[in-house]
Design a protein around this nucleic acid. Structure first.
Lengths: 206, 206
DNA sequence: CATTGTGAACGGGTTCACAGCA
DNA sequence: TGCTGTGAACCCGTTCACAATG
């Protein structure tokens, strides 16, 4: 393990490894192998070993990997050994569903602030939060330490809102709006768009 | 264009091309080029030309691509030149958000049936649908022509439910539960898991 | 003896570069 | 001139295969 720049495709698999390991841990397991982990996730054993070897030597020959140890290592690598506060932009039905989802906390995340630009929504309560005015987002974020946003606004506003967020210091955006965002280098964007995935699958169905 | 088996990674980009083209169409545009399309989506012009060339010769030298024509071609290739009925499994808050989302129809999909296994939810109404009993799913699907399911059930049930769906004739599953599904060859699965994507991004943030 | 870590071989997707054509 | 379609070159991620070791 002598590396500065890890391929993004490898980084993208680490959360899946972590998820599977946490599940094994819940099942009371203590040890696993690259083979078993690969079988669960649909990867080859060699790939898992090669991926992990980019970050260190975490296994033992003949034995495999200690599950709790590897969980700890991956949490450190992915920086989810801490709690990340998240800004939720958009208090529509999807925003509601996200705000009410209780699976974030044990994975390193928590919704910390909800904003919307609809006067009818500002001031209403969602899951213990009062919806704040989106136009004040820069002031609301100032000093908050929030660096991640989830975007659930209409497609037509997404680019403009994303630019405001960038301007307000946000460094990563999980974009639920069905539009590609064009933002400065250094801002990380991931997309969630069920229609893209549905259309991918229909190609294969008769 | 002489091809039987297109790489899946190319198929996965086609819905994005289609989405961008539809947006251009809404903007009143008639023609585009591989360069412009690539700029919108973050791909190189060469890649877009090469991808499209797998399916035919859709462009004109010197001019580019006719937007309505290319939209039609991609819709045919992806089989979204028809309407696909979808089964929604799980009537929790995420299921509600999905059922109330009105962006499916103009992209080739519509929710046709909602089921849940919670007696308190069965019989309630969501977005004009009465929630049906999940245990009857095979009978409900029989003769319906529904081949696609969206899964918004707890992680602990997801594998078992997915197997039932497979058994009931479902061919494609969009899985919102944070677990990898293990299903027979020929069943297509796509995953949506915001935590995986958040943990991917935190790797890059300080 | 089971299983890791890894250099080397392999494979396939991306980019290049240019002929061809409107 | 502008832009497509595509063979060839290139690049990079995956798989192989085996020495190393608890």
């Amino acid at each position: 393990m002598i590396n500065g720049s890890i391929p993004d495709i490898i980084v993208g698999r680490l959360p899946r490894y972590l998820q599977a390991l946490q599940r094994m841990h819940q099942e009371g397991r203590h040890t696993t192998s690259s083979k078993e982990l690969g079988d669960r996730l649909g990867y080859t054993a060699a790939q898992i070993r090669k991926d992990l070897s980019q970050f260190g030597e975490f296994g033992k020959q003949g034995t495999g990997y200690s599950i709790p140890f590897l969980i700890g290592q991956l949490q450190t690598i992915l920086k989810v050994d801490r709690m990340w506060d998240i800004l939720l932009v958009g208090a529509g039905s999807l925003g509601h569903a996200i705000a009410n989802y209780n699976g974030f906390a044990n994975r390193g995340f928590r919704i910390a602030l909800i904003v919307d630009n609809d006067p009818n929504k500002i001031g209403t309560k969602i899951a213990n939060f009062v919806v704040q005015d989106a136009s004040q987002v820069k002031a609301l974020l100032f000093g908050s330490g929030i660096k991640i946003a989830m975007l659930t606004v209409p497609a037509s506003n997404a680019q403009a809102v994303a630019e405001e967020l960038t301007n307000a210091g946000i460094k990563a955006i999980l974009n639920y709006a069905p539009v590609p965002l064009s933002l400065p280098k250094g801002i990380h964007v991931e997309y969630i768009d069920p229609l893209i995935q549905l259309q991918h699958m229909t190609y294969y169905i008769d």
